[in-house]
Design a protein around this nucleic acid. Structure first.
Length: 597
RNA sequence: GGGGGUGUAGCUCAAUUGGUUAGAGCAUCGGACUGUCGAUCCGAAGGUUGCGGGUUCGAGCCCCGUCACCCUCGCCA
């Protein structure tokens, strides 16, 4: 149907007769000459219709409009010069040196007037999603789809080279109450029973290791029925892998190599040896287990100094078992920040549970404004420890709850870095965060929760501390962090049923419950499970980094809105009564029961 | 479930303190034009101001409700 694409022809093709096919990107009708910009996936080529050379083609071309689908045959000609001797080439187009002198034009499909055109970058996302098929014609979207394809291809090739098998795991699974809310699928054959869509193939990949698969990879859809965010979608894709007879280093090394290959091939960027930081240090210095290392403003613990003051806010927090930490916002930003702006920050941090945000400035080597008057006795020590200079702003994180201090300052640090444009573009700051605690205390539910998941192995040295010194048990878990976002995480798994039982017990999953929910895993571990571990990357987030967007919907061909709707297909939608009946389901529509009660 | 933002022509936006017939650019339609490339020029058509109530002599604007989209808290082992 065509001999070339619309991004292919150069002056070396001049003289050839070619056939192109594509969409009408734009048209310019001069009454005599007509120019059409023809677009396909690969680019844009200008078609020229000259009434004197090909009258019938010119006649057809007069009727062309945006997004008509056509096929054109003609001769490749150099654009040459106009009668004033000016070059007619278009430097904005890769094919701008040439044009096609069309002799034959076929309209393959006349398009209705489109709601927007692919070259309109201003169209709202809502409209783009409703007409995704038009949106996808935009070069930016084509680039994203191509990048995503290439990432998947590079990863498959890399894993193949390293001896991984790609194995498919079920989508119709058993519901496990841990973790996120499940999407449920009713069973027709077993009324009243349900499948759950997988939140991840975690258990299956472990079973594959027991089954001797040795190395497993899958690029697989996962489902979590939670509210979406800018970087989160109910349906997302993991690069899921698992290996047998490995230590954490083996997994990290394979994953690092994979990332290195992707960044090299897609961006031409070399990823250096990735540094490691233990969880405790990450929390201490950055307040986060996924620190952004592209800028400073590290957290400084000043609890000991705060205790020496008469400032009730500080003393009260510490006496209640809390913390006072501070970040120093350097230079112009801090010094020039107005009272109104710092008040706004104080309001902003309340969403993380902080009572407010005490601040003060440094002028002439002294603390001024804000809470400075309460801190006179410790001002010298404070300035020395934070390294604050004139014009800097100190922001204090204060709370009886350490996690609130860390969350607040961690979020504030990132916000200020963005607001004050402290992040130089084009940086890739990688980090392995390791030595996670195995569990954390859930104060509301009064129980231990897994930090990673219940199958994460504790460090060998910590095996006897599981019951006696639970809070200090570290696990063989590792997260790969890029520019402050978690790209992937994994762990070495528990491969002994007795250890797995102890961990379940610790998490409040008694033997009977464990048997009911994870019996097949415990069984499998009894029949010769090799030591094994793995990791899962979020493919969507990875592609987001590669193409430079903060919107996950940009990297998904057919994404959903915050209400879980597909604006194009209008899913979800009600179903026929007959379908419900077949599934033994009845829908209960409740008219505002909450407000009635 | 909570907080914030947005909703006006097909698209992107404007509309003074609540005040005449709700405007502009692009797209669409008609006309002109033989070197444009965001073509240009002339003309036309295009509106339930998301939806439903209310206040008012008068509502795009104020109030109540509701829907959709976005950001966010909770949630996301």
């Amino acid at each position: 149907m065509r001999t070339h694409t619309c991004g292919q022809l150069r002056d070396t093709h001049v003289g050839q007769t070619v056939t192109l096919a594509g969409w009408v990107n734009n048209y310019r009708d001069h009454g005599g000459l007509i120019f059409i910009d023809l677009r396909d996936r690969e680019g844009v080529t200008q078609l020229k219709f000259d009434p004197d050379l090909a009258g019938s083609a010119h006649k057809v071309a007069e009727g062309l409009r945006h997004e008509d689908v056509v096929r054109a045959t003609g001769k490749v000609v150099d654009r040459g010069v106009n009668d004033k001797g000016q070059a007619l080439a278009n430097p904005k187009l890769a094919t701008g040196q040439i044009e096609i002198e069309v002799s034959e034009l076929v309209i393959l499909n006349k398009a209705s007037t489109p709601p927007f055109t692919p070259d309109d970058a201003q169209t709202s996302e809502e409209i783009r999603l409703r007409y995704r098929y038009i949106d996808m014609r935009r070069p930016q979207m084509q680039n994203i789809l191509r990048t995503r394809h290439r990432v998947a291809k590079i990863i498959r090739d890399y894993c193949d080279k390293h001896g991984f098998y790609e194995v498919e795991t079920p989508f119709l699974c058993r519901s496990t109450p841990e973790g996120a809310r499940d999407f449920l699928v009713p069973s027709r054959l077993q009324p009243g029973s349900f499948y759950a869509l997988p939140q991840s193939p975690q258990l299956f990949k472990q079973i594959l290791m027991v089954g001797g698969v040795d190395k497993y990879i899958q690029i697989v859809r996962c489902f979590r029925d939670e509210d979406p965010r800018a970087d989160r979608q109910a349906e997302f894709t993991q690069i899921d892998l698992e290996m047998s007879f490995v230590e954490p280093d083996d997994v990290m090394s394979i994953c690092e190599g994979m990332i290195r290959e992707v960044w090299k091939q897609v961006l031409g960027v070399d990823v250096p040896k990735v540094e490691r930081m233990c969880y405790a240090e990450a929390i201490g210095r950055f307040g986060s287990d996924r620190p952004d290392l592209r800028f400073g403003m590290e957290l400084v613990d000043v609890s000991d100094l705060a205790q020496q003051t008469d400032f009730k806010v500080f003393r009260g927090a510490i006496e209640a078992g809390g913390l006072v930490k501070v970040i120093c916002v350097p230079g112009a930003g801090g010094g020039s920040m107005s009272r109104k702006e710092t008040d706004a920050l104080a309001e902003w941090v309340k969403q993380f549970g902080a009572g407010g945000l005490p601040t003060c400035k440094i002028e002439s080597g002294k603390l001024t404004t804000g809470v400075a008057k309460f801190l006179e006795s410790i001002s010298t020590a404070l300035i020395e420890r934070t390294g604050a200079k004139d014009g800097d702003l100190l922001c204090f994180g204060v709370s009886p709850r350490k996690t609130v201090v860390h969350r607040t300052l961690s979020e504030l640090r990132v916000k200020l870095a963005h607001d004050l444009k402290m992040i130089k573009p084009g940086q890739w700051k990688w980090l392995w965060v390791v030595d996670f605690p195995m569990v954390e205390w859930n104060d509301e539910q009064k129980r231990w929760d897994s930090l990673h998941h219940p199958f994460t192995a504790p460090l060998d040295a910590d095996l006897d501390k599981i019951e006696s010194d639970t809070a200090n048990v570290k696990s063989k878990a590792y997260d790969l962090v890029l520019n402050g976002s978690e790209l992937g995480g994994g762990s070495i798994r528990i491969h002994r049923p007795d250890v797995q039982q102890r961990v379940f017990k610790l998490l409040g999953i008694d033997e009977e419950a464990a048997k009911m929910k994870f019996g097949f895993l415990l069984d499998a571990l009894q029949y010769g499970a090799p030591p094994h571990g793995g990791l899962a990357f979020g493919l969507d987030r990875l592609v987001m980094h590669l193409v430079g967007t903060s919107n996950i919907r940009d990297v998904i061909a057919f994404p959903k809105t915050q209400m879980g709707a597909d604006l194009m297909t209008e899913a979800p939608a009600p179903v026929d009564d007959a379908q419900l009946k077949e599934l033994s389901l009845r829908v209960q529509t409740h008219a505002k029961p909450d407000k009635a009660v």
